[in-house]
């Protein structure tokens, strides 16, 4: 087997065990995995930002534009530099300047510049969020709830077949659920005897939903756990030089030594 595959298996098993060791208690192995994880994540995001954002979206269009303009004014420039891609544009400079302005916070004397950048980002964020929220959390919810209570059969009479009645029941239940749940979230209304009962039904609806969501998500998480265990199971074989059993043994030995020592030193 390829050496890199074996090395990858040992690293994967090791880090999985280090992270899982947190289930017992905090320990140096978990700290190693934790710091490694953060370091790798930051490095990865940094490189993604450089290669997927800065270079293609800012550097290339701006440099292309600059070199193209320069070539028009000073023809010999084109002998040395050939811009890759189209003629480019200076427009990306605007968001780039806003982004760079945030870095001025490092220097207290000019940190006020960053406020313009933040004002733009917060204002832009709110401006983007408000219409999207009105559309998706207000209008779309009403749209989804408004359904006819019954349907007509082919003859023009009300359809009383089993599936049609079930659809009618669902529509009524949905409408009732929406109304009583919304009622729970009335803040400026004092809850009297009747409204308290309505609110309670609203809470039941919420709890049924949360229970269903909990079950679904837990199933999803178990799928992830099975994935990890499957890897541990796969890497136990001689092809991977028994990575799983050897590393489990080493982690256990470390635990006995480390926690045995700390038990002796603790008063």
């Amino acid at each position: 087997m390829d050496f890199t595959a074996i090395l990858g298996a040992w690293i994967a098993v090791g880090l999985t065990l280090f992270i899982l060791s947190f289930l017992y208690r905090d320990n140096p192995l978990f700290k190693i995995a934790e710091n490694l994880y953060i370091g790798i994540a930051i490095g990865y995001i940094f490189s993604i930002t450089i290669y997927n954002v800065w270079i293609p979206k800012i550097y290339q269009p701006v440099s292309n534009r600059v070199f193209t303009s320069l070539s028009n004014w000073v023809p010999w420039v084109s002998k040395f530099v050939t811009p890759a891609g189209d003629a480019g544009s200076l427009t990306p400079l605007f968001p780039a300047i806003i982004g760079i302005s945030l870095l001025t916070r490092i220097f207290p004397k000019i940190s006020w510049i960053s406020r313009y950048g933040f004002a733009f980002i917060v204002g832009y964020g709110a401006g983007l969020a408000i219409p999207a929220t009105v559309a998706t959390m207000f209008i779309a919810q009403i749209e989804g709830t408004i359904q006819p209570v019954f349907k007509l059969a082919s003859g023009g009479a009300i359809d009383l077949s089993g599936p049609a009645l079930w659809t009618s029941f669902s529509a009524i239940l949905l409408c009732l659920g929406v109304i009583v749940t919304l009622f729970y979230f009335f803040f400026s209304l004092e809850h009297g005897k009747i409204s308290k009962k309505v609110t309670k039904i609203g809470i039941y609806f919420l709890m049924v939903y949360f229970g269903a969501a909990f079950g679904t998500t837990v199933m999803g998480r178990f799928a992830l756990l099975y994935g990890r265990f499957f890897d541990l199971y796969t890497y136990r074989t001689s092809g991977y030089y028994h990575a799983t059993p050897i590393l489990i043994l080493l982690v256990l030995i470390f635990f006995f030594v480390y926690f045995g020592k700390s038990r002796k030193t603790s008063p």
């Binding site: 019954f150 919304l182 009622f183």
Partner: peptide
């Protein structure tokens, strides 16, 4: 939303009929 849903469902049901 409550009013719109109630009236909307009533109108939709009547419009089917």
């Amino acid at each position: 939303v409550i009013v719109a849903v109630v009236i909307g469902i009533a109108l939709m049901t009547l419009s089917v009929q």
